[in-house]
Design a protein around this nucleic acid. Structure first.
Lengths: 94, 94
DNA sequence: ATAAAGTAGTTTATAATATAAACCAAATTT
DNA sequence: AAATTTGGTTTATATTATAAACTACTTTAT
């Protein structure tokens, strides 16, 4: 009855990152940091985990002279997110 | 925008326990163990945490000669569960 | 020109949490 | 009566999350 929840998404910060990325084409590291109110270190770690899973793509570039990291969700990431939402519904009685 | 999720409920097993308890008057330890497919040790620990938080009440008795632990959700537990569901909806875009 | 402070992150260490293994007490089965 | 099963708890370990420390560079102030 209760499905196993994707442990990669069942983390408050990683879920927040995915939730933000699912509605936009792409987002900068600094934007994600502002929105989630996470520390840079924690955000960096969790972004890497999502990247390793193939749920997001991370691109490193420069905005003028300043380094800039942008993220975007992948098809695999969208699918995983949607599955997670469906799986959770049983728990939440939705 | 994104609310902080109750860390006590944002755990797969504890959420499953609460999800099961919210629909019934009470449930036995063994029933929860079957439904969640958790090990007895893990279940025991998580039940204690929910009890310490006042989210559930745990009663120890006997069924014949065999020990029997039964759990039921409290008003506080129901409220916490409902708040958790509402808070999560922002993440899930529901 | 250089020191101080800020930006954008990563790496590493530590704290918190989840899980499993080991254990206990009593009951049941062989 | 020994072995197994039931119903758990306690304790140790693995995993995960978080924060602190660090790197590399830019901007601003002196």
């Amino acid at each position: 009855m209760l499905k196993k929840l994707d442990p990669l998404l069942h983390s408050e910060l990683r879920l927040a990152i995915m939730s933000l990325l699912i509605s936009v084409e792409k987002a900068e590291f600094t934007y994600l940091k502002e929105q989630t109110e996470a520390t840079a270190g924690n955000l960096s770690v969790q972004i890497t985990k999502l990247e390793d899973a193939g749920y997001i793509i991370v691109k490193k570039g420069f905005k003028g002279k300043i380094p800039q990291t942008t993220c975007n969700i992948t098809k695999k990431g969208i699918e995983a997110f949607e599955k997670y939402v469906e799986d959770l519904k049983d728990y939440l009685k939705l």
